[in-house]
């Protein structure tokens, strides 16, 4: 049997991440970061946000969003570096930095959302 190439898998993750980030990231940025900072909306309170994130599905979703969006960004940026700067000879370094960064970010997301420290302080 022919070895399964890696590209289709990466592209699937890239597409899933692109779709999720296109649908979800602007509104999250606007509600959580931009609008409160500009004074357009009240900043969401601590109790409200922790109760939202207390649901495991919410945390799972946030992890999936972050991880896939990071893979999307890594994959796209890797090609941008190849095409835009013609540094294909640095292939391995670029791959490690891009996908490695996405992996590190995903691990960070899992760590933040699935280890508990916030609750004892409530």
């Amino acid at each position: 049997m022919r070895r399964t190439p890696i590209e289709p898998i990466l592209w699937s993750l890239f597409s899933a991440g692109g779709m999720l980030s296109a649908l979800f990231i602007p509104v999250l940025l606007f509600i959580l970061v931009l609008a409160p900072a500009l004074g357009w909306l009240p900043a969401p309170g601590y109790a409200q946000l922790t109760s939202l994130l207390s649901h495991p599905l919410a945390r799972l979703f946030l992890i999936a969003l972050c991880a896939l969006a990071l893979v999307h960004a890594a994959h796209r940026f890797r090609y941008t570096l190849y095409d835009g700067l013609q540094i294909k000879h640095l292939n391995e370094l670029v791959n490690i930095l891009c996908y490695g960064g996405a992996l590190a970010g995903s691990v960070w997301a899992i760590f933040l959302l699935f280890t508990r420290v916030a609750e004892p302080r409530l």
């Binding site: 980030s21 999250l28 994130l53 972050c66 969006a69 994959h75 941008t80 302080r121």
Partner: peptide, 26 residues
């Protein structure tokens, strides 16, 4: 269009920083 990838990654970092702050308490 392609360089939006950098900002998508930055947005994720911003959201995760938000979650990290939330974890540290009110």
């Amino acid at each position: 269009r392609e360089i939006t990838s950098v900002f998508v990654a930055a947005a994720v970092v911003l959201l995760l920083l938000y979650v990290a702050a939330l974890r540290r308490g009110p």
